[in-house]
Computed example of a mutant assay.
Amino acid sequence: MSKQVAIILSGCGFRDGSEIYETTLTLLRLDQLDIAYRCFAPDLDQPKVIDHVSGEACENETRNMLVESARLARSEIESLEALNPDDFDGVILPGGQGVAKNLSDFAEAGADMTVLPLLRDKIVAFFEAGKPIGLMCYSSLLAPRLLDVTIPVTVGHNARIAGAISSMGGLHKTCSADDVVVDREHRIVTTPAFMTAKGLAEAAKGISKLVDKLDEMMR
């Protein structure tokens, strides 16, 4: 394995962390292409913990993003602070509401959101080095705040989030869950994934295309 991709997670579970299916499908496609990967997550507590049965907040419970993300990474994970972009050829951020609640405050602030400064520093380093970046589902909405250029991205046909992307100075493109939007100039690939996917098979097609495009850009 000569290529290395960093995967940035935000917890475990679509309601308050990284989307499990999106993460697993990403890791599967990387493995199928014989691309090495390493997972990272902020070593910080989640602002909120959500009961995935009821959808309600667990008011008296605290969970750490790194500890929760280790469930997805089978314990093969490091703190986001330890991520050195020089050691990797690309980076992928799976979606899930952890992006909107943990990596940013989009869930509360909408288009006035801020992004975790450490995350921005890491992504900017990949961007400035010309290394490809893959964003899916909620992660796509971070682009206008992460990078100081207008980049076409997609969250499928979610009008509310597409409007927020536009309000932040981004450029939203409608796209089906089994496809991708590619900005070759800036080396950014996005896919709606479970923002609009009706099932695993549909999401897998888009996620596989995203990883395939990153593979092309890393050659």
Rank of each mutant, 00 (worst) to 15 (best):
T191W: 08
Q97L: 01
T191I: 12
D112N: 14
G90W: 15
P94R: 03
S2D: 09
A41V: 03
R38H: 14
I77G: 14
D34V: 07
L146Q: 04
I133Q: 04
D179P: 05
K173L: 03
S54Y: 05
E61Q: 06
Q97C: 07
E56H: 07
A159C: 04
I188E: 13
C39G: 11
A36G: 09
D183K: 00
E76W: 01
R29W: 06
T150Y: 03
L141R: 09
R120E: 12
Y37I: 14
L118R: 02
D89H: 11
E108I: 07
F126M: 11
M65F: 07
A6L: 04
V153D: 01
H52K: 12
L200Q: 11
E68Y: 04
K122S: 07
S166F: 09
H186R: 10
Q4I: 04
D45C: 14
M218R: 02
V49G: 11
L214F: 08
N84P: 06
R38L: 15
S166M: 05
H52I: 08
G156E: 10
D215M: 03
I8Y: 10
F126G: 00
E19A: 11
M168K: 06
E128P: 11
V53P: 02
K48I: 15
E81N: 12
I165C: 04
S166Q: 11
K3G: 03
A177I: 02
A41S: 03
Y21Q: 15
P144A: 05
G130K: 14
D179V: 01
L44I: 13
M136E: 06
V180P: 00
E76F: 02
I165P: 02
V155S: 04
E185K: 15
P47G: 00
K198Y: 06
E68C: 12
D31N: 15
R63S: 13
I77D: 09
